[in-house]
Design a protein around this nucleic acid. Structure first.
Lengths: 187, 187
DNA sequence: CCTCTTTGTGCAACTAGTTGCACAAAGAGG
DNA sequence: CCTCTTTGTGCAACTAGTTGCACAAAGAGG
């Protein structure tokens, strides 16, 4: 439902080839809408046949057969339409929360290690977001585009802040419980 | 990947029929692993043929042909195994963030209303979580099961707190931007 | 009694997302 | 030159999740 619009957004920001898009998804757009390169190529094909994007003209095939795409007016309209349309937030699906709930009935053996690992992952992600913030959003810029993008980055930062805080709390709770590691069984 | 384990967790907590599970997913487990009744029935079938759960014996068919299931030892083992196994957090996919990023290039017309609507939804969810907290986790309880479940609820509360805070911030930012509602176009 | 609604279970078809390759061209290292 | 790796594009098969029904039994309302 949203991948085509994620790609349209990326291409409006800057026309790109499939691989460039893949890279940009890994670094930026993908922070809140992840996609694999296979998904991206498939979707580029669809968007092209639907007439929302086209191959950038005036391009030598360069290395490989690298094709670059740009967004057509119809694509921009579709993106604007989609952006303005109301949408319900998608229901949460989080494995770690589910696992803790499961641990309440089958024991907490093993989860502590993975909580620590997740804490580390989220700390790295948070650090990365902060670097991006310092680099791309120095104080004093206030174009509309910058402010909106900063707002989105802010969400990422706040989310990771929530996770690191909560994971630390979870680890502290777990430490107080009897027999983690020994394979605590309740009932 | 995780639906069967969500169901196993729910069934270990309390044996149930398909409909009861559906209700419990709407109220509790589903807060962090949502599922439709069709998914649930399908999965119950699979879990039964795999020998992880079985129909509760000694049950009159009551009304309809209501079948209740309970977890077998093999199911409990599988759940414990899954809980202890390391798993990567699944990449984020959030439509609202994507839409704001899109709004940065195609204009913010229309998003304000939906931001307000989302704020309202998240505020309700937060209120609901807080009620559950007051009702189910009065101060002073500290069985391991309760503490773990409380921890999970805490994550829900903190997440909704993040969303309400961020959405308010987003609305404030948007109000400062030129020409929302008039269909702001950049470039 | 007879309809109408609610409760409960489920199939079928579809869409979205993932996994596992395949393969061609170009450059790197000997 | 010849292999080996990297870059770039993509197909095919699968798994997970969603949507749209269908239908039967029980209870509610006249």
């Amino acid at each position: 439902m949203s991948l085509p619009h994620a790609i349209l957004t990326a291409l409006v920001e800057k026309p790109s080839s499939g691989l460039e898009l893949t890279r940009r998804f890994d670094r930026s757009i993908g922070y809140f809408w992840s996609a694999t390169h296979q998904q991206i190529y498939r979707e580029l094909g669809k968007l092209e046949t639907e007439g929302l994007i086209r191959e950038l003209p005036g391009r030598q095939p360069a290395r490989g057969q690298k094709k670059s795409y740009e967004v057509l007016p119809a694509g921009r309209e579709e993106l604007a339409r989609w952006t303005a349309a109301p949408q319900d937030p998608r229901p949460l699906r989080d494995t770690m929360l589910l696992r803790l709930r499961a641990a309440a009935v089958v024991g907490t053996a093993g989860v502590g290690d993975d909580l620590r690992r997740h804490l580390d992952l989220h700390e790295r992600q948070l650090a990365e977001y902060r670097e991006i913030e310092e680099r791309d959003f120095p104080p004093g810029r206030d174009g509309a585009e910058d402010r909106l993008r900063h707002l989105v980055l802010r969400a990422g930062i706040d989310l990771e802040t929530f996770w690191t805080g909560w994971l630390r709390h979870a680890l502290a709770e777990l430490a107080e419980l009897p027999g983690e590691g020994a394979g605590a069984q309740n009932r």
